[in-house]
């Protein structure tokens, strides 16, 4: 199972195994990782699973996958950076084994 590392705003790291096909938002919620809210459950209807893809993974993960994701990032509570993504739109595959994402200081 691919492993994802979530790095909290204060630098705390949590490694979790995430089923292939799941997304980075669920990876956090189902494993008790704080810092991701995922209020709408992945419908591109909020921006509470905002995260920053680690610089070393940007090329592989890519930018926002749709106009809707881009629109939603516009209302994220924390600063939006070039490596900002919505966790629910990052689908985990074997290719992303070892992915590192940073969670912002707030989602509201």
């Amino acid at each position: 199972m691919p492993k994802i590392t979530y790095v909290a705003h204060d630098g705390a790291r949590t490694d979790v195994d995430v089923t292939e096909g799941e997304n980075a938002m669920h990876g956090a919620l189902f494993n008790g990782v704080d810092g991701i809210v995922g209020e709408c459950g992945g419908a591109l209807a909020c921006a509470t699973c905002h995260c920053y893809v680690d610089e070393s993974w940007i090329a592989k993960v890519g930018g926002p996958s749709s106009q809707e994701e881009q629109d939603m990032l516009g209302i994220a509570a924390a600063e939006v950076k070039p490596n900002s993504r919505l966790g629910c739109q990052i689908v985990i595959s074997d290719e992303l084994d070892g992915l590192v994402v940073h969670t912002p200081d707030r989602q509201y």
Partner: peptide, 19 residues
């Protein structure tokens, strides 16, 4: 432009059956 609607409410109690 896509904006959050409140039809399924918000916060931790946002509708679990929304999808």
């Amino acid at each position: 432009p896509r904006k959050p609607i409140l039809t399924f409410t918000g916060g931790v109690h946002a509708c679990m059956g929304a999808h």
